[in-house]
Design a protein around this nucleic acid. Structure first.
Lengths: 321, 321
DNA sequence: CGCGGGTCATAAGCGGCGGCTATGACCTGA
DNA sequence: TCAGGTCATAGCCGCCGCTTATGACCCGCG
């Protein structure tokens, strides 16, 4: 430790990280090569951009741009920081796409209903892509469990639905758009994290777990798999209101949790959680798009549906590295 | 379009997206189940948290928490929004980890030198993981091209280096920690995006491309592959200062670009860029950790190195979905 | 050679937003 | 019934980022 730094480890991230506006400015400067042009693009005055950039560099303690008469170019450090900023802004753009859809509610062109897992982890990216390719599309989003989603689609309250789970109501047509699997995860310090042999299903069933509340799709699939295996349903150690809360508790070491692999991909790759293999338990489930039987999706619904499939191609690209 | 909304499409994202502090507050409320407790954790007063949350809900136009006497629980929409916020904050935490390392510079325990690709796309995640597992470790980061990195490590100015490319200087020991591949990418509207057959290498060599400046590792590998194939080196359409700038230009439709798959994974999965297969051109390259010959990494350097390997396991988890 | 057009920086004023303290309303459990 | 927890409202204030106005600097052009 250098002494003066790190006085607040773990708390108040937003104090140590620059503003989204500052990151946006940095990216604009990187792209346009000039503080003034960046300012104009963002709709602020040139002095404002100059001052903001200076403050940003002061906060980070690093020179980000080399100013000259003919413009401003990134330093090496600036290029690196810009890329980090881009990742943050990309997540923010997903947030924005989702939030817009959530606010829309009525009178929107494309009404989507999605299960929590899809709404949380997949839909924001699809919506940003949709916005990039079809900027005029207004979308509204209703999030709920798979049963509610199916009802809304069947009742004509939503044009397109996304559900996870085993069964599809007869009133709906469906297409599988991906697969999902529940994982048993623990904090890296947990005894299970060191296991090499798969965990017996009976031991999992006997261990109190961090779970979503009863009625969640995740919980249903877990109980179904355990009972199909001949055991009792899962025993809750804590029942928490949201996926995020379950994850936080698991990362904090409260106990083992069972969550969608989509929900824990980040934590796994950052080694904040470890996956525990389980013997002989099928925790896979299909993610499906659903729509009223007979009514082939058209227009905006078709556009969105088209975006959900070729994700396989992108994953293939990642896979090959 | 509902009329009043979307008056500023594409510009000033930071106007439409809540503050990082607001997102942090939302996550704290989700985890702790109470505005007051969240306020205490963030070091602000309870009324401040209350007001901020109210403002957040007003901005998004959605009720996020259900307030009651016994605390505050997330609504369905709140759970979804919280997860989106978590993604943003995770990217912000990576930013923070990188920025800390960048500021450290001198007098730090572990001095890392990394090529641009590694520094931009991989290192922030490793640093957050390192911080999570070994909170006391202070890290400094120098970013530059692979040659500079090798020099710094050889000169003892860095304890551990990360390079991409073909050759490793004799003065250094190295371990391959991953593979990387250059991709030819174009905007979705570009003619090449619709190709089914691979692009002949000669056509690639004959087409002006968006490239990093001469001397970058990416450029070197591309030229090496083209000349090994018997052709001329790449022809620049534009030479840009940073990976981010190249990407922006490519997304904007300026022309084809050649970039690391790590750099374009996000854009590919969001369909802002499309990968173009190229016939008979080997654009793979190894990512290596390097250290002074004979000096096996120990202490913090060993900890960090250990985090870079099991990433393969995490990728395997994603792969299986 | 001096003049416009571009760059960035400095100076001074101002408005808003987020913070604080103080207080009150409300429910619950002892 | 009272203590302790919840959240909300009110009024004040300081900071931070915005604005406009100006100046320094460099380039290319007439």
């Amino acid at each position: 430790m250098t002494g003066s730094e790190q006085r607040d480890p773990g708390g108040a991230l937003s104090r140590r990280v620059p503003d989204l506006g500052a990151m946006e400015l940095l990216m604009a400067v990187a792209r346009l090569g000039s503080l003034g042009r960046a300012a104009r693009e963002l709709g602020i005055s040139q002095p404002a951009a100059s001052g903001r950039m200076r403050a940003l560099e002061r906060q980070l303690g690093v020179a980000l741009v080399r100013r000259s008469t003919g413009g401003s170019a990134l330093t090496e450090e600036g290029a690196v920081v810009t890329e980090w900023a881009r990742r943050v802004l990309e997540a923010a753009a997903d947030f924005d796409a989702g939030a817009r859809a959530l606010r829309g509610r009525r009178d929107s062109r494309l009404r989507v209903a999605a299960s929590m897992t899809v709404a949380e982890y997949l839909l924001p990216g699809w919506l940003t892509a949709l916005h990039a390719r079809h900027p005029g599309t207004a979308v509204s989003l209703a999030a709920g469990n798979s049963v509610v989603v199916a009802q809304q689609v069947a009742a004509g309250e939503a044009d397109l639905g996304f559900v996870e789970g085993l069964d599809v109501p007869a009133a709906l047509d469906a297409a599988v758009i991906g697969r999902d699997r529940l994982l048993v995860v623990v904090a890296p310090g947990h005894p299970w994290a060191a296991r090499r042999r798969p965990l017996p299903a009976a031991e999992l069933a006997a261990t109190p777990l961090l779970l979503r509340e009863e009625g969640s799709g995740t919980r249903q699939v877990l109980d179904a798999a355990l009972t199909a295996h001949g055991g009792p349903p899962a025993v809750p150690l804590l029942e928490l209101a949201s996926t995020t809360a379950v994850k936080s508790a698991a990362v904090g070491g409260a106990g083992p949790a069972v969550l969608s692999e989509l929900a824990v991909a980040d934590e796994l790759s950052a080694h904040r959680l470890a996956a525990v293999p389980v013997a002989g338990l099928d925790l896979r489930r299909a993610l499906r798009a659903v729509w009223p039987a007979g009514h082939r999706p058209a227009g905006p619904a078709r556009d969105l549906l088209a975006l959900t499939r070729p994700a396989a191609g992108a994953k293939a690209a990642l896979r090959s590295m």
